[in-house]
Design a protein around this nucleic acid. Structure first.
Lengths: 127, 127
DNA sequence: CAGTATCCGTGGTGATACTG
DNA sequence: CAGTATCACCACGGATACTG
């Protein structure tokens, strides 16, 4: 690991000096992971995403989508029809992160048992 | 993407039913990423980590290390000497996540320019 | 339908002080 | 040195109501 990268990830410095940390927070955020994962499947409407993910408030879904769109990961296609129809999809760029995040998510999935065993051992060691 | 995994990642259900989401939050947490990254280099003492990472409060470093230790990612070696000496390192298991997280961090590093360009475009489009 | 606006509670976070 | 304990803050997230 290079020193410089760790330094660049340091959250103590302000946002302008720590851009990668911010991006990381966006894509690994509570709902960011789920939105990216969902969009790996294809294009979805706002309400579809809301149903797919489940548990997201409208506010947080909108906020998450906006952040990801602004970072260039998500493409927003608003059709000028009534009632409004908006489709979200991954940009090519976004697909790269989504896959990475997805790999990480799958790794954790596979590791649940090992982690839980570790936790049990840890907890028992101090009781 | 399988539906089941997305469901398993859903944060609306409680912790017991959504274990992978919790693990993900631990390793991608604000300081978790940095601790894992730092430990990819080798073994370090508490104060060394504190200096390396920079900006962490003692409390948060301790808390992060404990969480990662409990999950089985970090090994804590407390030597019974005075003054106390504690060394932290990655477990083999922890090295796996650390590398994944590290890859993601490096990806964001490489993508800073693209993201910032996207942001500029986004911001200009609505002003 | 696809959001925005607003209010409000909670817990994550940090500063400080203290201990073995 | 390597933490723990305590307190205080405020930003994040959720619920609700409203709009184009």
């Amino acid at each position: 690991m290079s020193e410089s990268v760790l330094r660049n990830l340091r959250p103590d410095v302000n946002a302008a000096q720590c851009p990668s940390r911010l991006i990381l927070e966006h894509v690994t955020s509570r709902w960011g992971v789920l939105v990216l994962a969902a969009l790996l499947d294809g294009s979805y409407r706002f309400s579809e995403l809301r149903r797919m993910i489940g548990g997201v408030s409208e506010k947080m879904l909108a906020q998450t989508l906006q952040t990801l769109e602004r970072d260039g990961f998500v493409h927003r296609d608003a059709k000028p029809v009534i009632p409004p129809r908006v489709d979200y999809s991954l940009t090519e760029f976004g697909r790269e992160v989504a896959q990475q995040v997805w790999e990480l998510a799958r790794w954790t999935e596979r590791s649940i048992d090992r982690v839980e065993a570790a936790r049990t051992a840890y907890d028992e060691a101090r009781s």
